[in-house]
Computed example of a mutant assay.
Amino acid sequence: MGNFTIVAGARPNFMKIAPIIHALQKQQKEGVNVKFRLVHTGQHYDKKMSGDFFEQLNIPEPNANLGGGGGTQAEQTAAIMVAFEKELMENRPDLVLVVGDVTSTLACSITAKKLQIDVAHVEGGIRSGDLTMPEEINRMVTDSITDHFFTTSEIANSNLRKGGFSEDKIHFVGNTMIDTLMAQMPRFQKPEGEVFENLEPGNYFVMTMHRPANVDQEHSLKAMIDAILEGTGGLPIIFPVHPRTAKNLQTIGIDASNLIMVEPLGYLEFNYLVKNAKGVITDSGGITEEASVMNVPCITLRDNTERAETIHLGTNELVGTDPAKLKPYLEKVMKGDWKKYQGIPLWDGKTAERIVKILVDKYPN
């Protein structure tokens, strides 16, 4: 009997593990002797992660919440490791499955390996080459001790081969985030509230910014927002904003009627806005994947990306963090002269089924 512990620590992690849980539940219904526990490390305290959140994703409430949020990176890592070690000693699985590149991914993979438990990394092999990002360190350390890599692209496969990992550990399966996107798309819903009432499809932008390089330097933040306002022709810009960023914007006196700052949105509401937007301006990684599959122009305000396939085959362009470089890209979006989604191999909504088939084959007893 395969016995697995699935770890998630931040909201995007749950989007990535939801289809894996559904695929495991399907196996159980078909009489396959497989067990799993869902562990929430509590890394991100998020008021939107209530029962409704798990209901929206159609997944069970976690079996355990480790309460490992808060503090510095080191404090958070330590708290999660201490609590997860206890969890594993009380409920020892055959394998721990971690996803993505958050602190929980790193902390739980190390803890499992020190207890001689196998580790599978969903989204293994992704690299940005930027060691100033904590996520890159999390990815590198996790991959160095992983037993099974579930990869999203040939680029990730190539990174792992260059790292000396054997082919039998590398499983090219696709992207579980896209499984969730495709499953949930029919349920996307327009957010409630007056600011969303008059939005015309294809006639507004969606923006997200959270990386310190973009939001913590007042001068560069003002220059970037000014460049965005200048290049979007007065169209509404919906900006779900972190309280810290909102405070910074207030300090620098950004005041434009078409820059509409809103509370962070739920998954179904946010992706409704992305799907119907003229374009997306972001410094996130995951949004570039979703925008690409929905064939929405995407401008990334970063100097590097760990998801190069969204540039080669998707709708994403890496513009950088220099506001002066933004203008020609926004002009292309405004003119409707943007590249189309070409299709990324295995991003077909069936990734989780492939993952679970491999797990059940590898851990039959």
Rank of each mutant, 00 (worst) to 15 (best):
L199E: 03
E200W: 08
E200M: 15
G202S: 15
G202I: 11
N203V: 10
N203R: 15
N203L: 10
N203H: 15
N203A: 12
Y204I: 13
Y204D: 03
F205V: 01
V206L: 15
M207E: 11
M207N: 08
T208Y: 06
M209S: 12
M209K: 11
H210A: 04
A213K: 07
A213Y: 00
A213T: 03
V215E: 02
V215C: 06
V215Q: 08
D216P: 00
D216Y: 00
D216H: 02
Q217H: 09
E218Q: 07
E218C: 00
E218H: 07
H219L: 01
H219K: 14
S220F: 00
S220W: 03
S220L: 02
K222Y: 01
K222R: 11
K222E: 01
K222D: 00
A223F: 00
M224Q: 03
M224H: 01
M224A: 01
M224W: 01
I225K: 07
D226E: 07
A227W: 03
A227R: 03
I228A: 11
I228V: 14
I228Q: 11
L229R: 13
L229H: 09
E230T: 03
E230P: 00
E230D: 09
E230Y: 06
G231Q: 15
G231L: 10
G231H: 14
G231Y: 07
T232V: 06
T232F: 05
G233S: 12
G233E: 14
G233D: 13
G234D: 02
L235T: 00
L235S: 04
P236G: 08
P236I: 01
P236F: 07
I237S: 11
I237H: 13
I237A: 11
F239A: 03
P240C: 09
P240K: 15
H242R: 06
R244N: 05
T245I: 04
A246M: 10
A246F: 09
A246R: 14
A246Q: 10
A246P: 04
K247S: 09
K247V: 00
N248G: 10
N248D: 03
N248C: 11
N248L: 10
L249N: 01
L249S: 02
L249H: 05
L249F: 13
T251A: 13
T251H: 13
I252E: 05
I252G: 04
I254R: 05
I254V: 14
I254S: 05
D255L: 13
D255H: 13
A256M: 06
A256F: 07
A256W: 05
S257V: 07
N258R: 11
L259V: 08
L259M: 14
L259T: 06
I260D: 06
I260A: 11
I260P: 14
I260T: 07
M261C: 12
M261D: 03
M261W: 08
M261R: 13
V262Y: 01
E263M: 15
E263C: 07
P264G: 13
P264I: 08
P264A: 12
G266L: 09
G266W: 04
Y267N: 07
Y267K: 11
L268R: 15
L268F: 13
F270V: 02
F270G: 02
N271V: 05
Y272H: 13
Y272F: 14
Y272I: 05
L273K: 12
L273N: 07
L273I: 10
V274D: 07
K275N: 12
N276A: 12
N276F: 10
A277S: 14
A277E: 03
A277M: 09
A277P: 04
K278I: 06
K278S: 04
